[in-house]
């Protein structure tokens, strides 16, 4: 027997937790782009919000605690696009390496 209650980590309603951190921030351009990519991929039928959710949930609790919201979103968008055959893992890796060579900041690297 285990103590597992049958719920996955993301199904957290009703658990105990500390005070609500009253923080917020205005989104950076790269975060807005991730949001836009998700909306557009959905509109174009490349994957659904359920596909995004499934990838986010499969990342597990440690990813939730470690990475920011849109960091997890771009990982989930990427996973769904690879699964859909839009591009291959090797293409992603090659492009990311190329981008790293463009410059040390987002501003310098953001447009090829």
């Amino acid at each position: 027997m285990t103590d597992w209650d049958g719920r996955r980590w993301h199904d957290m309603g009703g658990q105990a937790a500390g005070p609500v951190p009253m923080e917020s921030h205005d989104f950076a351009l790269w975060e807005k782009r991730v949001d836009a990519l998700m909306v557009l991929c959905g509109q174009k039928g490349l994957f659904t919000v359920d596909g995004l959710r499934r990838a986010l949930e499969d990342m597990g609790e440690e990813a939730f605690e470690t990475y920011s919201y849109y960091e997890r979103w771009i990982a989930a968008v990427n996973q769904n696009l690879i699964e859909a055959g839009v591009y291959a893992t090797e293409e992603l890796a090659a492009r990311m390496a190329e981008i790293a060579a463009r410059g040390p900041t987002y501003g310098e690297a953001q447009d090829g």
Partner: peptide, 18 residues
């Protein structure tokens, strides 16, 4: 835009460009 480029930002740029 002028802080060090992160891994996830590189992924966003790559996914968008692809």
């Amino acid at each position: 835009n002028d802080s060090p480029l992160t891994y996830w930002q590189r992924m966003e740029i790559a996914v968008r460009e692809l």
